[in-house]
Amino acid sequence: MDNTSDTAPGPARPHAMARTVLLYLGLVGIPALGVAAILRAGHSITPPISVGGRWAIETDAASAAAVPDLASAADGSAPTLVIVQSGVRLAMNLGESGLATSTARLDGNRLTAALAKGGTAQLALDGTVTKASGSPRLTGELRRLDCSSCPGVDFSAERVAGPHG
């Protein structure tokens, strides 16, 4: 009787076992090396800094007068800027003013944005995020886009709540 079937005992088994082990090593080991290579290639890539959360904008009477949206955003207290961050992409809302992001971008620690109401861009924000000690601060300039002759107003804001509340 022919004994060379699939169930044949003896020397066939170690070969099959070795093939399976090699196959497994190939299927797991090579991809693992691939992932290691990917991680090595990306070791210099850094994630963006954190700007998500709620920022309290510190204003004075002069700046509030120059940028009416700041006054309307204040609602009796310091106007707040809420930022939802997804990497370098930002979604922003300025307090109760109804101004929301038209375009916004985070480049390193520089934050630039145009805030719009009803589809019309009204306010430009250009700031820099710094973190010395304590909460991060955003300092820069707010400028009305609907008034080319109006001067920009310097502002400073402190993050009062992080992205998770």
Binding site: P31, V35, I38, P48, S50, Q85, S86
Partner: peptide
């Protein structure tokens, strides 16, 4: 294996623009 490796490569492309602030490349990948 194939989607894992391709997903890891994709992570490399998305990390800078879409990873949350402070994310670590290893975890993200």
């Amino acid at each position: 294996v194939v989607p894992f490796v391709l997903g890891s490569l994709l992570a490399l492309a998305l990390f800078h623009s879409f990873a949350p602030a402070g994310a670590r490349l290893l975890s993200f990948t």
